[in-house]
């Protein structure tokens, strides 16, 4: 199958699971809205299993550098064996290995869906997710890595991710020179017009845009996902977090981010925030979905 990999890429807490839930509902309508049947994404432990299956050695025996160098060959093998689209949840920034190869081989990647969310809301949600103070979370979003992020002294369930700072992450995927077709979606726009947003995603992936899409979008509404987590838990919830699905809205940072922390986030991320229409007051400029990103010759071009 030609270029079967679809990367659903984002900084953490920017709608990645939401998008996966909708796509899962489209692919298997019988599981629509069941958060513990989101099987697409090759995330968490399944990424390690896939790596161990395709690589010639187990990731658990390799240094982080060796894993990085081996990843392109693993993704090429995954693509070579694929009979359908393979969705990969990605929090990494787009990058090349020290050998110069793209971690995700461009010839194997059909489409990147890049999701962004206002960094103030990301900070509030990510802090809850990690079980860290909001101050520490803001430092992590600025690119600092506490020791536990490093994989030299323990075996993390998933493979180590190299997500970079919030800005580095966005810039890496939205750089017009990267060799992927990138559809950039803002979380805020997706909330304003869920169906319209997911229609764009479905069209980019040649997935159904009829009633099945509407049903999948409705089944994956944040309130339904939250209710589903309350009822039956969520297998992807980290133990550091009481609940994975929270408010899921915009301006969720109020009462959590001090003026000083907001100023830090703006200082660290000003250029990218401006490019994406994210205001220093935490709002996001309204704009038509089809204006804020455009695809030209299979490449991404972000319109200021």
């Amino acid at each position: 199958m030609e270029a079967p990999l679809v990367l659903i890429a984002s900084y953490p807490k920017s709608g990645n699971t939401w998008v996966r839930a909708v796509i899962q509902g489209l692919l298997t309508p019988e599981h629509a809205g069941d958060i513990n049947r989101i099987d697409i994404g090759l995330y968490g432990h399944s990424r390690r299993r896939v790596f161990d299956y395709y690589a010639a050695a187990s990731a658990a025996d390799m240094t982080p550098e060796e894993i990085e160098l081996t990843l392109p060959s693993v993704y090429e093998d995954v693509a070579a064996d694929a009979r359908n689209l393979v969705f990969i949840k990605v929090h990494d920034r787009a990058r090349r290995t020290p050998r110069g190869e793209w971690v995700f081989p461009p010839q194997a990647v059909r489409q990147v869906i890049y999701l962004v969310r206002h960094p103030f809301d990301v900070a509030a949600s990510f802090s809850n997710h990690l079980g860290f103070s909001i101050e520490e979370t803001v430092r992590i979003m600025s690119g600092e890595r506490p020791n536990w992020f490093r994989a030299e002294s323990m075996l993390p369930l998933s493979l180590q991710e190299t997500d970079g700072s919030w800005s580095q992450n966005a810039e890496s995927w939205l750089n017009p020179d990267i060799p992927y077709s990138v559809l950039c979606m803002r979380y805020e726009d997706m909330q304003r017009d869920e169906l319209g947003a997911f229609r764009r995603i479905a069209e980019a992936l040649s997935l159904p845009t009829d009633d099945r899409l509407q049903q999948a979008v409705e089944a994956a509404h944040i309130n339904r996902l939250k209710a589903s987590e309350v009822r039956g838990g969520f297998r992807e919830r980290p133990t550091t977090s009481l609940s994975f699905f929270r408010q899921g809205g915009s301006m969720t940072w109020k009462d959590k981010l001090t003026e000083e922390l907001r100023a830090t986030l703006v200082r660290e991320n000003e250029a990218v925030m401006k490019m994406l229409g994210y205001g220093e007051d935490g709002t996001s400029a309204e704009r038509a979905l089809n204006r804020h990103s455009d695809q030209v010759n299979g490449r991404s071009r972000l319109q200021p």
Binding site: D61, M62, T63, E65, E152, S153, M154, L155
Partner: peptide, 26 residues
């Protein structure tokens, strides 16, 4: 047995005299 640093700590096994599996890995 190949044990990571965190597993050794949980099992209260001192690692000072143990040989590392790979240079660069704890």
């Amino acid at each position: 047995i190949k044990l990571w640093q965190d597993a050794c700590e949980r099992l209260e096994l001192p690692t000072e005299k143990l040989q590392t599996v790979r240079t660069g890995l704890q």
